[in-house]
Write a protein that binds this DNA or RNA. Structure first.
Length: 619
DNA sequence: CTAGGGTTAG
């Protein structure tokens, strides 16, 4: 393959990207760091390391460097390009690399490797290959780093077979694949759902290192392949490869996430018996999982246990606990833990603050949520998109969508990038506030900003249009969705069925409902209730009863809402016998009459249409 | 000076 590549040397040419940074930032920058020194002092910057450099400053530095005569050495350029690549600004690196080329600054193995990596990370593998070819023509032999970059490109593109072939070829070329090579390939195999190939690979590997095993164990756990994971663990032990604490942590976490909490506890004991000391990650992971299953006392026992054993809980441990309590609505407990962590001199971080803000929002205590927001900023902990999404959701829920929109505008001022969740939250909020125009405007903005709408976005759009009396428009969107590659779910259909029924088009709703099985979509209790409600509204009670029968035979179990709806419909229809039969059935399922049923019965008692015995049947 | 990313929280 590489022989083929070398004959393909294309010119390394791309459109230049606008160079960021303006005169003001340049002069500030130089005043700050180089007052009174010549521009040649880029050397000093490079010596001091570029790990904390900002993108604008890095680009400015590049402009200074290319002004120098003679040009700085290629090593200095490679340091700079590398620092920008670490910021994941691959397009900028490519643009600067091209400018170097145009200025006659020749690349070397390292800068070529950086650029090849950047093309790969931008999923432009053919350009990476072309550059590799060019580099080889110039006499630079790719090394294991260059080839591993390419491997990563194949793994992340849809070219996993080429990735596997590349590793074979690397071996033929005399390279000994290392941990990086293997973890990259394993990652790629899992990305392409080739779990068993990954296991086979690690088993026939000459190099038996724990990191590579860790990558496989992690991949298996993430997919929930618990049996494969445990058998791999056994095989490791047989092969005298003793799993370390990280491997155990991975498996314990995987077991927890897939609901095998007791197995996780057992494995925890097993590692202790083998003399492998659990660490803060082991505990945090177990604690977080126990919380998620509502096992509070077990979780707090583990917390005391780790403190006793001098394994200090850290910000992750506390954040996990705080978040779990918040989600349970136990904000007081969460605040207690927050105070406890401060007492232990553990600094809360953005995740901790986000959870607490969420806790306040969940209880509609928005002022306190905002105070917490201000407080984190005052502590130099800067809000991220999750912080804003949480707050926006809180404001929308409290019907203060205007303020949600203000927060949204504030995000761009802070240079935070809104994501799909941001837009979804606001679109829903705007529709709920009845502001259809703004909601649709925002949807357009989302698309034009390149934020990908997902199924939830479209469902909110349909729901909002239907609930605001715009069924026709919803039907247009629905039509588009059906033609697209999106896989519509039962929510989508329920929304449309409800929209049709509420607009009086129960027949259309019925047709859609009946088409679900053909589409391979299983109706849930919401879909049935929606349809039953529609039929009741048109007094098609026989059909509604038939649907209840169908639910009992082969559908989702009817809930309290199903029965109450049908009971009311039959009462309104004057059919006491049918109603009392349904009430008996409902009571046998341990459901009771809901507020509107009781209200209706009370009214009918009042005007004499029913007698007292009816009310007694209900409660 | 170049590559990947085996463990926990939103």
């Amino acid at each position: 393959m590489l022989a083929k590549i070398s004959s393909r040397g294309k010119r390394f040419v791309h459109r230049s990207l606008p160079v960021r940074g303006n005169a003001a930032t340049v002069s500030l920058f130089w005043r700050r760091d180089f007052s009174g020194k010549s521009s040649y002092d880029y050397r000093e910057m490079l010596r001091n390391g570029l790990s904390d450099i900002r993108l604008d400053d890095a680009v400015d530095l590049f402009s200074e460097m290319v002004k120098c005569r003679p040009f700085p050495s290629i090593i200095e350029f490679s340091k700079l390009l590398s620092s920008i690549a670490k910021m994941k600004k691959f397009d900028v690196v490519i643009s600067l690399g091209e400018q170097m080329q145009d200025l006659g600054i020749s690349h070397n193995l390292f800068t070529y490797s950086i650029l090849i990596n950047c093309f790969c990370r931008r999923s432009q593998i053919s350009l990476a290959l072309a550059l590799l070819g060019k580099m080889m023509k110039l006499g630079y032999e790719p090394d294991i780093v260059t080839l591993s970059s390419l491997l990563n490109g194949f793994c992340h593109g849809k070219r996993i077979s080429e990735a596997v072939a590349l590793v074979d070829q690397m071996v033929e070329m005399g390279f000994q694949p290392n941990t990086v090579t293997f973890t990259t390939l394993i990652h790629g195999l899992f990305l392409h759902n080739k779990a068993s190939e990954a296991v086979a690979l690690v088993e026939r590997m000459a190099l038996k290192d724990l990191v590579t095993y860790g990558a496989v164990v992690n991949g298996l756990c993430k997919r929930g392949d618990i049996d494969l994971t445990l058998s791999l663990l056994k095989k490791m032990e047989k092969g005298k490869i003793e799993p370390n604490v990280i491997i155990y942590n991975t498996v314990i976490d995987g077991l927890c996430k897939y609901k095998h909490v007791n197995d996780a506890r057992n494995l925890f004991n097993e590692m202790e018996n083998k003399g492998i000391r659990p660490d803060v990650v082991t505990y945090s992971s177990l604690i977080s999982c126990l919380c998620n299953y509502g096992r509070w006392s077990d979780a707090s026992r583990l917390l005391s246990d780790m403190i006793e054993k001098k394994i200090n809980p850290d910000v992750v441990t506390f954040s996990a606990l705080i978040d779990a309590f918040v989600k349970e609505g136990k904000l007081l407990e969460a605040e207690k833990l927050y105070k406890k962590m401060i007492k232990r001199s553990i600094d809360p971080d953005i995740v901790t603050y986000n959870s607490l803000i969420n806790g306040f929002c969940m209880q509609d205590r928005l002022d306190e949520a905002k105070q917490m927001f201000e407080f984190m900023v005052s502590k130099d902990c800067f809000p991220n998109v999750v912080t804003y999404n949480t707050l926006i959701k809180g404001f929308c829920k409290a019907k203060r969508v205007e303020e949600g929109m203000e927060l949204f505008r504030e995000m761009s001022q802070r240079r935070l990038v809104s994501n799909t969740v941001t837009y979804n939250t606001l679109i829903r909020g705007l529709f709920q506030a009845g502001d259809c125009d703004m909601a649709q405007e925002l949807f357009k903005e989302m698309v034009s900003d390149g934020v990908p709408p997902n199924l939830m976005t479209y469902n909110f759009l349909l729901d909002g249009l239907c609930n605001n009396g715009k069924l026709e428009k919803a039907l247009v969107v629905f039509g588009y969705m059906q033609k697209s590659k999106m896989e519509l779910n039962i929510f989508t259909y329920s929304i449309m069925i409800e929209g049709m029924c509420k607009a009086g088009k129960v027949g259309d709703g019925w047709d859609l409902f009946c088409s679900l099985s053909l589409k391979g979509v299983k109706s849930d209790v919401i879909a049935y209730n929606t349809m039953i409600s529609g039929l009741c509204s048109k007094r098609l009670l026989q059909k509604a009863d038939a649907l209840l029968k169908k639910m009992k035979e082969d559908g989702p179990l009817p809930d309290s809402g199903t029965y109450n709806m049908l009971i009311r419909a039959h009462l309104r229809d004057g059919d006491k016998a049918a109603s009392s039969e349904l009430i008996r059935e409902m009571r046998s399922c341990e459901f009771t009459g809901d507020a509107s049923t009781i209200g209706l019965v009370a009214n009918m008692l009042h005007d004499g249409r029913l007698d007292k015995s009816f009310l007694e049947m209900l409660s």
